[in-house]
Design a protein around this nucleic acid. Structure first.
Length: 309
DNA sequence: AACCCGGGGGC
DNA sequence: GCCCCAGGGTT
């Protein structure tokens, strides 16, 4: 359940109602973004398709603050896809560090190899070609096409979904999974001009990240508060709350995998079984986790222990 | 559609 | 303690 923002101001009759016309929203978000956007390195003028692609993969389910230092080190070590494609997996996993979901690091390296093998070492511009790369789904393909290359693409991440749901649907949060109706609507409100579309997408994402946040939105700082259906309706609670399931963590295979991989990552060379037994004492779950880590290509089994590939 | 996959920080 | 975070792949 999302808490209503402080000092809600339910629908008082507005003498100058600001309809949620796309053109108004586009202008308001663009002006807000120009004044308030964070100065993130992958938005710099010298950003490349590769630097943007790396940022987008790292940002999948990982907050900006944790990505930024790893992104800097990563681009310094592997400034082109060819550099990453040639890197040892062990180096790649260590550089990924504690960003989480380490299979992303393997897929990024595989994507780099595909870019070298099939695209002459250049990150593709085309949405479908991007989408075919390992670890690049609908969101990431659109983000790279739009943010790196200025192409018109429907960028629909958790921030965009939340802002559009609030402003246009009047609901607190979007449905647990992305619907086709949402995608159609997001396409309908996307500016026609490619550059304007990219500005809109990055602007509404930033608005969701900084102002229209999931927990405690700052509606007094929002450039489209006057056009927001959720605000106008008095901030009704999340209609999907009963369907949201929190993923368990303590004692799960995911925690076991993370701890075991972490133990090997932070060590050098082969980590003996006895040491891994200390990292995760429950034997059956430990062995299962190690087996899946090997199957995923994140670990290799050695005589009496495990190592990074 | 449902499930699996990390880790940290804000509240 | 709970929830959220620029999602993607597999079944």
């Amino acid at each position: 359940m999302t808490a209503a923002p402080h000092s809600p101001r339910p629908a008082s009759p507005d003498p100058h109602p600001t309809a949620a016309h796309p053109a108004h929203l586009h202008r308001a978000v663009a002006e807000w973004y120009a004044a308030h956007a964070r100065d993130l390195p992958w938005r710099a003028a010298d950003a490349t398709g590769w630097s943007v692609l790396v940022s987008e993969v790292m940002l999948q389910q990982t907050p900006v603050a944790r990505v930024e230092p790893v992104w800097r080190a990563w681009l310094a070590a592997w400034p082109t896809p060819a550099d990453l494609a040639a890197a040892p997996v062990a180096d790649v996993l260590r550089a990924w560090g504690r960003l989480g979901y380490p299979r992303r690091a393997l897929r990024l390296r595989d994507a780099a190899a595909a870019i070298v093998a099939a695209h002459d070492g250049e990150v593709p511009l085309d949405l479908d070609t991007l989408r075919a790369l390992p670890g690049i789904g609908e969101y990431t393909a659109a983000a790279v096409a739009a943010f790196a290359y200025g192409r018109r693409a429907v960028v629909l991440d958790t921030n965009v979904r939340r802002v559009l749901t609030r402003v246009l649907d009047g609901e607190a949060l979007p449905a647990p999974s992305l619907t086709s109706a949402e995608r159609t609507r997001a396409a309908a409100v996307l500016p026609r001009d490619p550059a304007a579309a990219a500005r809109w997408s990055v602007g509404i994402m930033e608005l969701g990240a900084l102002v229209c946040t999931a927990r405690a939105p700052s509606c007094t700082a929002c450039p489209v508060a006057g056009a927001c259906a959720w605000r106008a309706a008095g901030y009704p609670p999340d209609p999907h709350a009963h369907r949201r399931r929190v993923q368990a963590w303590h004692g799960t295979d995911r925690q076991a995998r993370g701890r075991l991989l972490g133990a090997v990552r932070e060590a050098g060379g082969v980590v003996p079984d006895a040491v891994l037994g200390l990292a995760w004492p429950e034997a059956e779950q430990r062995e299962r986790a190690l087996a899946t880590l090997v199957a995923d290509g994140l670990l290799v089994s050695r005589d009496d222990g495990y190592a990074l590939p």
